[in-house]
């Protein structure tokens, strides 16, 4: 039997090798990278499959077998689940329409309820409330009001960039045209600011990941060398 420290050492060497294999992509596409990438796909999907079987499906199978009278509906879920798996075969794929229909119906209604109650209504209400962060509380009243108005105009301008279709030859259509113009000008400018903020956030996030990997390489190399007595 292997000692625990040997297993850990093998793990560290394996992790080091796989990290470096992924980083070889920087010098171009190569077989080492392809190997690591395929291993990633295989092991990760295997891990997730095992997790789903063990956490979601298996406990419910046990309950169904142990107390069928109480958990009879799990049997129904499993039949629907098997029908969903039939999607993988050409001859039987129509069977999956029923569970997919249920999934979409449930998903759409949950999304509808959640979006209305969690985003649309609270965010619209927040638009009407001149908002201030804690540090802005020291501002004079006119500045707070101006801030609130700017928030309202800014949000409406960005919303105008969506261009929901309305007939252009009605009073509502005229408003729609004005709103669209606001969207094309101020709205577009604000969207560029957001994109800049999101891009900066993405760069900071990826930078942190790279620093983390370099730190891992530094620590692991010194640990492996130390354990090997080099």
């Amino acid at each position: 039997m292997f000692a625990a420290e040997h297993i850990e050492l093998a793990g560290l060497v394996c992790a080091l090798f796989l990290t470096l294999a992924i980083f070889t992509r920087l010098i171009g596409d190569n077989k080492l990278f392809r190997f690591a990438q395929s291993l990633f796909v295989g092991v990760t999907s295997g891990y997730i499959l095992a997790l789903v079987l063990r956490s979601v499906i298996w406990p419910r199978i046990l309950l169904l077998v142990q107390q069928p009278a109480q958990y009879w509906y799990y049997g129904l879920y499993f039949v629907l689940g098997l029908m969903l798996l039939a999607r993988g075969l050409r001859k039987t794929n129509a069977l999956a329409n029923l569970p997919l229909g249920m999934l979409f119906g449930i998903g759409a209604s949950v999304t509808l309820g959640g979006t209305l109650a969690g985003t649309l209504i609270p965010q619209t209400r927040a638009l009407a409330t001149p908002f201030t962060t804690t540090s802005l509380n020291t501002w004079p009243a006119w500045a707070l009001l101006l801030n609130g108005v700017l928030v309202l105009v800014g949000a409406l301008a960005v919303l105008g960039a969506f261009r929901f279709t309305l007939p252009s030859h009605s009073p509502v259509g005229f408003l729609s045209t004005v709103w669209s113009w606001l969207g094309r000008t101020l709205g577009r400018g604000l969207i560029m600011i957001i994109l800049g903020a999101l891009y900066a956030g993405a760069l900071v996030s990826f930078y942190t990941l790279l620093v983390g990997r370099f730190s891992f390489l530094q620590q692991t190399i010194s640990e492996v060398l130390g354990r090997l007595g080099i």
């Binding site: 959640g114 979006t115 969690g118 609270p122 999101l198 956030g201 900071v204 996030s205």
Partner: peptide, 22 residues
């Protein structure tokens, strides 16, 4: 927020990646 915080009004703290904050 939409499915849990909104119906329960529980206090919720979000700790996120830098790319998600804005």
């Amino acid at each position: 927020i939409e499915q849990v915080q909104s119906p329960t009004h529980l206090s919720m703290d979000a700790l996120v990646s830098a790319s998600a904050e804005p």
